[in-house]
């Protein structure tokens, strides 16, 4: 391994680190609106990192994915979520199943696990961004953790979407992105999913007068 790391690789690693940091910030953020803003910021960072990979490798289709990320994850989805929060008049979210310091500690353990799982694969990879595969898997796991510890519907959905961000990063860092047709399909699914969830929120709200999903724990094996 050479000691001189090219500037583009350094930039990619920097952006990946920012994405991981944002994943931790989302885990710690209790209020709904700042949470959505953090999610938008993560989308933006993802777009920038994809742009750098595209520029340094000359992979033309990655510009397309970067544009898709910008429109969908940095603008459209946060906008939909903002509208939902306003329409549903969601109060700030102040509780979780596990307190925040504990959550952060679990998060750190998850990051270590993710790096160990990703290590053999990133050694095989020949891409400029291979070092970020561990980070990608770590942000998937952190998003997953967020879905587990949050008890309100909107943070759970943000966790779900953040998981998709992590997967997208994994795809760019291991293989320079999936074929365009697949990426378009995934984007369509995410968008339709978000819209369906929006409809669904109104149904939950109509039924329970709240978006606390602890109301949704009646169906159990007795």
């Amino acid at each position: 391994m050479s000691t001189v790391v090219p500037l583009s690789a350094q930039l990619i690693n920097l952006f990946a680190a920012v994405i991981l940091l944002l994943a931790f910030a989302m885990l710690a953020q209790r209020r709904v609106l700042p949470l959505i803003n953090l999610f938008a910021l993560q989308g933006l960072t993802l777009c920038l990192s994809t742009l750098v990979v595209a520029f340094s490798t000359g992979q033309a289709h990655l510009y397309g994915s970067a544009a898709l990320t910008l429109v969908l994850k940095a603008l459209l989805l946060p906008w939909i979520l903002h509208r939902l929060v306003r329409k549903l008049q969601v109060k700030s979210d102040v509780e979780g199943l596990v307190n925040i310091p504990t959550t952060m500690l679990i998060g750190i353990v998850l990051v270590m696990v993710a790096f160990n799982v990703a290590l053999p694969i990133s050694q095989l990879a020949s891409t400029i961004s291979r070092g970020t595969l561990g980070i990608a898997l770590a942000s998937v796991m952190l998003a997953f953790l967020m879905m587990i510890v949050r008890t309100k519907a909107i943070p759970q959905v943000v966790g779900f979407l953040a998981m998709e961000n992590g997967l997208f990063l994994a795809a760019t860092s291991a293989t320079y992105g999936m074929p365009m047709v697949v990426e378009l399909g995934i984007a369509l699914d995410v968008l339709v999913g978000a819209i369906i969830l929006g409809v669904f929120f109104f149904q939950i709200r109509e039924q329970f007068d709240s978006l606390d999903i602890r109301h949704l724990e009646k169906l159990k094996e007795r």
């Binding site: 898997l137 998937v140 997953f144 879905m147 519907a153 759970q156 779900f160 998981m163 998709e164 997967l167 994994a170 995934i186 999913g193 369906i196 969830l197 669904f200 149904q203 939950i204 109509e206 039924q207 329970f208 999903i213 109301h215 949704l216 724990e217 009646k218 169906l219």
Partner: peptide, 25 residues
Amino acid sequence: RTAASLEAAWKYFILCGVGIAQALF
């Protein structure tokens, strides 16, 4: 649109969503 059916649909969406994210990886 009963309470139970909303809960079932939510669980379906979230669990299968998490599952399908693993499949994407």
